[in-house]
Computed example of a mutant assay.
Amino acid sequence: MREIEVFIDTEEIAEFFFHELAKRGFVPSEEEVDELADITFDYLLKKCIIDEQEEEE
C-alpha cells in the first residue's frame, strides 16, 4: 500500500460543516461547528486514518 501525505485543517472542516448544515436548514453557531470539526479530527485520529503532527512556525 502506498502512503500519501494529507493535510487536515480543522478550520476548513468547520467551514465545510457550517455551509453543509446551512444548506440543510440548520443555523449552527461558530462554537458548534468548531466542536464538530474537533470531533471529526479526533475520529480520524482514533481510526488511524491520520497521524497528528505539530505545526511548524
Score class of each variant (00 low, 15 high):
residue 16 F to G: 12
residue 34 D to S: 11
residue 35 E to W: 09
residue 32 E to M: 06
residue 17 F to K: 06
residue 52 E to M: 08
residue 57 E to Y: 15
residue 25 G to W: 01
residue 23 K to N: 01
residue 15 E to G: 13
residue 14 A to S: 02
residue 29 S to P: 05
residue 36 L to K: 01
residue 1 M to I: 12
residue 15 E to K: 14
residue 43 Y to A: 11
residue 13 I to F: 12
residue 16 F to A: 15
residue 57 E to F: 15
residue 1 M to L: 14
residue 20 E to C: 02
residue 27 V to R: 00
residue 9 D to V: 07
residue 22 A to I: 05
residue 20 E to Y: 07
residue 53 Q to P: 08
residue 13 I to P: 01
residue 9 D to Q: 05
residue 51 D to M: 11
residue 9 D to A: 08
residue 56 E to F: 13
residue 6 V to R: 03
residue 26 F to W: 13
residue 16 F to W: 14
residue 45 L to N: 02
residue 36 L to I: 03
residue 12 E to R: 12
residue 47 K to W: 13
residue 41 F to V: 06
residue 6 V to D: 00
residue 40 T to C: 05
residue 23 K to A: 03
residue 31 E to Q: 03
residue 20 E to V: 06
residue 55 E to M: 11
residue 43 Y to G: 07
residue 46 K to T: 07
residue 38 D to T: 09
residue 14 A to G: 02
residue 24 R to Y: 05
residue 46 K to W: 14
residue 45 L to S: 04
residue 23 K to Y: 03
residue 46 K to L: 14
residue 30 E to L: 09
residue 40 T to L: 06
residue 46 K to R: 15
residue 39 I to F: 07
residue 4 I to Q: 07
residue 18 F to R: 12
residue 20 E to L: 02
residue 1 M to Y: 12
residue 20 E to T: 07
residue 50 I to R: 01
residue 19 H to E: 08
residue 40 T to E: 00
residue 17 F to L: 10
residue 24 R to D: 04
residue 4 I to C: 07
residue 38 D to P: 07
residue 6 V to K: 01
residue 5 E to D: 08
residue 23 K to E: 03
residue 5 E to V: 07
residue 49 I to P: 01
residue 36 L to S: 00
residue 33 V to G: 04
residue 4 I to P: 10
residue 34 D to N: 10
residue 19 H to F: 11
residue 14 A to V: 00
residue 47 K to E: 13
residue 3 E to D: 15
residue 23 K to C: 04
residue 53 Q to Y: 10
residue 24 R to F: 04
residue 38 D to N: 08
residue 35 E to T: 06
residue 21 L to Y: 02
residue 18 F to W: 15
residue 51 D to V: 12
residue 43 Y to F: 10
residue 27 V to M: 04
residue 50 I to L: 04
residue 38 D to M: 11
residue 15 E to V: 14
residue 42 D to Y: 08
residue 35 E to S: 13
residue 3 E to C: 08
residue 17 F to P: 02
residue 24 R to K: 09
residue 39 I to N: 05
residue 51 D to R: 13
residue 19 H to G: 10
residue 37 A to Y: 02
residue 10 T to Q: 04
residue 9 D to Y: 07
residue 44 L to M: 04
residue 22 A to Q: 01
